[in-house]
Design a protein around this nucleic acid. Sequence first.
DNA 1: ACTTAAACGAGACGGTACGTCGCGTCTTAAA
DNA 2: TTTAAGACGCGACGTACCGTCTCGTTTAAGT
Lengths: 185, 185, 185, 185
Amino acid sequence: MTTAPGRPRDRRIDRALLDATAELLVEVGYADLTMDAVAERAGTTKPAIYRRWRSKAHLAHEAAFPTDAERVQVPDTGDLATDLRAMVRACVDVFAHPVARAAVPGLIAEFAADPTLHAALVGRLADGPLGTARDRLARAGIEPDAVIEAMAGTTLLALLFRGGDDLDDAWIDRTTTLLLKGIAP
Amino acid sequence: MTTAPGRPRDRRIDRALLDATAELLVEVGYADLTMDAVAERAGTTKPAIYRRWRSKAHLAHEAAFPTDAERVQVPDTGDLATDLRAMVRACVDVFAHPVARAAVPGLIAEFAADPTLHAALVGRLADGPLGTARDRLARAGIEPDAVIEAMAGTTLLALLFRGGDDLDDAWIDRTTTLLLKGIAP
Amino acid sequence: MTTAPGRPRDRRIDRALLDATAELLVEVGYADLTMDAVAERAGTTKPAIYRRWRSKAHLAHEAAFPTDAERVQVPDTGDLATDLRAMVRACVDVFAHPVARAAVPGLIAEFAADPTLHAALVGRLADGPLGTARDRLARAGIEPDAVIEAMAGTTLLALLFRGGDDLDDAWIDRTTTLLLKGIAP
Amino acid sequence: MTTAPGRPRDRRIDRALLDATAELLVEVGYADLTMDAVAERAGTTKPAIYRRWRSKAHLAHEAAFPTDAERVQVPDTGDLATDLRAMVRACVDVFAHPVARAAVPGLIAEFAADPTLHAALVGRLADGPLGTARDRLARAGIEPDAVIEAMAGTTLLALLFRGGDDLDDAWIDRTTTLLLKGIAP
DNA sequence: ACTTAAACGAGACGGTACGTCGCGTCTTAAA
DNA sequence: TTTAAGACGCGACGTACCGTCTCGTTTAAGT
């Protein structure tokens, strides 16, 4: 294993940029997020961003769905009802997180036109609770795709059309029940 | 009831602009849709657009979800399974329409930051199959909001993450079944 | 005589930009003159500049050699010695003006690579004292090109290599004498 | 007398860089000359350049006015007319050389803002025909500065405003005559 | 017929933000 | 210490598109 030639990248700048992006997303939203503002808050400049991410969307999607986040734990109790409820809650936790909430609408717009971003985001989510859920459901003998589509889709729509604050325990219960009955044999 | 003074607006221009917008949305997508291009294709000028719509998003949302569209008919058979299936199909038909498909991601982004647009789009959809579905379900003694959220959300997610071509009869069957069991007493 | 269609250009912005350019040229020099700084000082933005001038050089050359300047008067006494001296002085006045002095080195660099600018600058100078001098000399029966080349070239070199402050009366006398003898029959 | 510690500098790289610079100056001009391109053509890297020259201008000025050039010979016949003509020709040869011609406008711009470069270029020219000319004229009992200023200035202006191709024998004759009469007692 | 008032074509406007280029520097491992 | 390699931080660039404005002209309805 050799070292790459050339000056190594400064990891502190990566962090500063991601942090600045997350903060600004919450403060001003995706549409009003400018690369100049990100660079300035991170104490660096625009080219440093573009050296690391190919677009605003790629930067935002990494800030909104960090891979190193303390993994949303979905306990494996063996009881489908309990586990499914945990999955729904995890799904809400991921999408309703303030940074994600601010970024998602913009990301949706961009990744419709950018296959690169599409792939990146799908991969990133597959490593999160959605991937966990898929495994768990498959082990329970349930074809997972339809359920995940319904779970994530319902969450997304609720988020987009009413804002994340309504996604409380009652909403989670209601949605879990619908899904649970929907997938019953 | 009096007539507005001054030169009346030319209705042919309204149409030409909406048509040009729809065409361009399909051809280049929302992000690369420019007002100059719309005006040029419609054979008019930008001020003529802004006299009619307050922004690109307002124009696009009207082009994507025309109110005068031949209404997607949802037959009222009285059989919940049959009717629900028709609702799902209508939902797919609306969102998977080429123009809507091109416009939706961009609209999602914009209306996250523009309450005006949010209201306009919600109203427009409520007049369409979603409104019909709500009435129908309510009459069947079912609380409609959760079902609609699940139905539209699942459709939206499928559309965004896989493109509309996979939303065939099998998908409609699968989704209808899940919802039907989910809302059973 | 018809009016051009479209919104007319705001002449006050033209002026503000030229004034800002002249000021900044003196303050920071051509190399450190940035379009952003010009725009900011003029209270406008970069695109407003590029709508009016095709490059920094075109802007600077207009700021450095304004056509509407109170014309450098070259009295026509009929005495060649007197008149030539006045021409040399006028030449110095034009090139040693603080704004011109700051702009000239940069302009030289740019117009070597930009025929557009070359033509523009030649035309602009031909309307100034150089044009007057050419006419005057021709009337005196002297082939003007060689003299003008020598006069302007000597002035330019002196300016570039020693700064304009040394171009005092003694320098003007010395140069006038050299030229006068040089063109004697 | 000791040797510098560490790895000695590779003289072949010096040459390759100067050659690459000269070639590229002629091909693309000073403004479009990039350090990356120079390094690439010379088969080395940018840091190797900056170890040798402090800036693009310093590199270009050395490439344009090489000290080791076969010295432009100015024969010393003792006849002022003959010698002055040779000086003018030498001046043209130096400045109209393709590489110098490409570099001069850019260098003028840079050394207006860089005293280091100013000094370097003046020193380099003083070692060339201008230095020779000064000595020769002084020996002939003529105050040399004014003549040199006129000679070099006229050449420079002609070069800048008409391109070097017009500086033929006729031009040299004409200019020599003007100077000769101009400095006559 | 004349006035009023708004829509029209045309196109430039002011301005935000973009993504890129090239400078000169720095870090690394090998020579 | 120089080399090759290449990324770095940074300042500045010129452009694209937004939504607005200013014209002079056209079109109808009201007087």
